[in-house]
């Protein structure tokens, strides 16, 4: 039985760029969550606490 082929091996530069893309995407998604949270508070105001328990 032959050894499994290694497939695509990323170079150091490709790994560095992939990491940068992943960080940028993570930061963007985090900022989006924060934005939705803040806009929700702004639009609802005190009404955000006014809900049936």
């Amino acid at each position: 039985m032959s050894e499994q082929e290694p497939g695509i091996v990323l170079s150091a530069e490709q790994k560095r760029r992939r990491r940068a893309r992943s960080i940028a995407l993570g930061v963007t998604l985090g900022a989006l969550v924060l934005l939705v949270y803040i806009v929700t508070i702004v639009k609802l105001g005190p009404g955000v606490l006014n809900r049936p328990l």
Partner: peptide
Amino acid sequence: PSMAGVGDY
């Protein structure tokens, strides 16, 4: 594999 940097996007 993609060589695109954040700057490219």
